[in-house]
Amino acid sequence: MNPWQAPSPALADLRPGRVRRYAGGVLEVEFPPGLPPAAPGQFVMVDLGDSALPHPFTPFRTLAGGGFTLLLRPQGRPVAALLARRRAGQAVRLFGPLGRPFPPPPLGARAFAVAESGRIAPLHLLVRLLGEAGGVTLFVGGDDDAHFAALAAFRLPGVRIERRRGGGWPAVEAALARAGTDDVLYAAAPEPALARLDRALGKPGRQGPRAFLALEVAMACGVGACYGCPVPLRRPPDPRRPYARACADGPVFPAGEVALG
């Protein structure tokens, strides 16, 4: 099976298993097999019973035997709800994988991956495949211990990790300085950081590198049904249809396609 190819989604009730704790309150929670393996950058919907909406998560690590893990940042993720489910021994309903994945790199391109503010979960499988295929440099930026948590998971064949600590978007700046015209850049970061990357690449006269941006957008259905996750298109083919759907047309968009921040 081609690991870059998005499979058909499925639905499963799975019990959260082992939990690993990292710096800054970051958690990694194991799940048993039950869903088709995600392509890099895809997400799964997780219903924790705490809200009318399920939570989108990018599977973090693939486990031997078909299980996977989710990475929970201390802010903004339903940590308490998931841990309560786990303590009670209750299954949670998941469905996926969903969304448009990162594409494989063009032949001969050098690959760079960029994570800011702890958004490394969408990059693990990507970086693993890129490392096996010919190598990748992963820039990790942030100003908090939590932003550098779980990096041990990225010690993989062919993967070079470069940390950039500081304000602004230090990993974005480092990748922009390093990547050449024929290279390819993959980024997962808060929207202002992706917007910075998008603007730099869109400068008149700048030829490349090609870039793919993983957005984090509020969603409801996750399956392209409800139109609850619009992202404005930069140049809509029909002005009466100005939006793409983050869950179905994304969450990965080529730089230049959507209007950011």
């Binding site: 909406l53 957008v217 609850g228 619009p230 992202v231």
Partner: peptide, 18 residues
Amino acid sequence: VPWPGNPPPRVAAVDGGL
């Protein structure tokens, strides 16, 4: 004719609903 819909965000979970 086609309607564009509202600007994002379009959904927000609230206590007891959406």
